[in-house]
Simulated assay, not measured.
Amino acid sequence: MTVVGLWLLPWVAQAQPAAGRELVVGTRAAPPFAMKNAEGQWEGISIDLWRHVAERLNLRYRFEERDTVAALVDAVSNGQVDAAAAALTVTAARRQVMDFTQPFFSTGLGVAVGRGGATAWLPVLRTFFSFGFLQGVLTLLAIALLVGTLIWLFERKQHEAYGGNAMRGFVAGVWWSAVAMTQAGAAQDGPRTLPGRILAVVWMIASVVTIAVFIAGITSALTTQRMQGVVRTANDLRSIRVGAVAGSSTVEYLGMQRIGFQPYNLPADGLRALKAGQIDAFVYDRPLLAWTVQQDFPELEVLPITLDNQNYAIALPLENTIRVALDVTLLATLRSEWWQQTRFRYLGRDASN
């Protein structure tokens, strides 16, 4: 027997009261943590982890499926099952009615949106109505007005286009300044005085640089906004139509953030509603959301942000007799090469997240 096996012997003995009967382990479809293969057998990160731990503790068990998160939570809290291995998040509300093992996976909430479409243009519109954009436009206008005023003052006695009525001359100066700044065409009625021509040369050269910098800044801002997506923080969810799975930890988070949402029984239901344009974003556990979108909804995408912090663990009824044994075995397993390979097999490059 290995050193690790000898070290686990006391905890295996502690779990023996439960090993005398067949445990009922609740689960629900939550790929890639719990799902059925082509033969109808359960597999996934949580399922494989439970099998690995149960084998070392000599536990007999069978899986029992529940349709929803709420049904699985109720089954654990009411003692209808002896454990739950799926993708259950540890929350304060759940901890009041059930027990949890050591967390085995840390994640957060992801946000799915449509690829393209009207919603995808919201970040662009947000940029054009942002304070920074308006500030840049007003700055350019102020400089154009200043140059136009100076041209009028320099030219009003030497150039008939800027003479006569003060308002007429001022408007002519500002118009020439705007045309010269934007390079919209050949600027008519150019300055004739030496100060006016010096100012005109300086302004035309400076305006080329100013416009180029302004356009580059706006292009960069638009690119960044499009890459970040319609949602960057929880605040952005308040201005769009949001969907979430009823009874999930996502609902608790949205409630604390005072964010309204449309409830759905299953993630697939919410993603179909998103695809149909009935909602603008769907919020759910990030790894589960990414898996479902990748497999079944290529028209959608998961934004590169993570909201909230979540921990997955095996759920147990209160006053159970095997939590300590499970914890010790889990802690040893989570540091093993087997666990690293299991995560990589299901999550690939996202296994380190």
Rank of each mutant, 00 (worst) to 15 (best):
W176R: 14
S77A: 13
F214A: 02
G348M: 12
I151G: 00
A13F: 15
K36P: 03
S177K: 00
M1N: 15
L194Q: 09
V328F: 05
L138R: 10
V293L: 01
V124Y: 04
I198M: 14
N165Q: 13
V283H: 01
Y312Q: 07
T333K: 02
I151E: 04
R66S: 04
V209N: 03
W42L: 06
I314C: 01
W121R: 11
T250F: 08
A246W: 15
D327F: 07
A71S: 09
R95K: 08
T342C: 07
R51A: 11
Y162K: 04
A92Y: 09
R126D: 13
L199Q: 06
M1P: 13
F282D: 07
E155T: 03
F131I: 08
V76R: 02
R56K: 13
I45D: 05
N78Y: 09
A290P: 05
D327Y: 04
A70S: 11
W339A: 03
G255E: 10
R323L: 03
R95M: 11
V124E: 02
S239W: 11
V25D: 00
A144Y: 01
I198Q: 14
L138G: 09
P195F: 05
D82K: 01
L289A: 06
Y346A: 09
Q14M: 14
A93H: 01
L194P: 08
N353S: 15
T219Q: 12
R335F: 12
R94K: 08
Q158L: 11
A290I: 15
R323A: 07
F128A: 00
P123K: 01
T107Q: 10
E64N: 05
A38I: 10
Y346N: 06
R51E: 15
E65Q: 09
A87Q: 12
N311D: 13
A172K: 05
A161S: 11
N320H: 10
A244T: 02
I322D: 07
L140T: 00
V81P: 02
Y264V: 11
Q295F: 03
V171G: 08
I314G: 03
G243S: 06
W175Q: 13
L9T: 14
G163C: 13
M256N: 15
G40I: 08
W175C: 11
V179G: 06
A184R: 10
N353Q: 15
T306E: 15
T210F: 12
S46P: 03
F133M: 02
T101M: 00
G136I: 02
T250H: 11
G243V: 09
F128P: 00
G114Q: 15
A70C: 01
R66N: 10
T333F: 03
G173R: 06
L146D: 01
V230A: 05
V76K: 02
G26A: 06
T127Q: 10
E252G: 14
A276F: 14
Q14I: 14
R272M: 15
Q183F: 09
G79W: 00
Q158K: 13
E319H: 15
K157I: 12
I279E: 08
L72M: 05
D48I: 12
P10N: 04
V111G: 09
L318M: 11
A268V: 15
D99W: 09
L330Q: 06
V283Q: 04
F282S: 09
A178E: 05
T193G: 05
Y284K: 00
A112L: 08
F33M: 00
S46R: 04
T2R: 12
V113K: 00
A313C: 08
A75C: 02
V208A: 14
G26M: 05
T89S: 05
M35P: 03
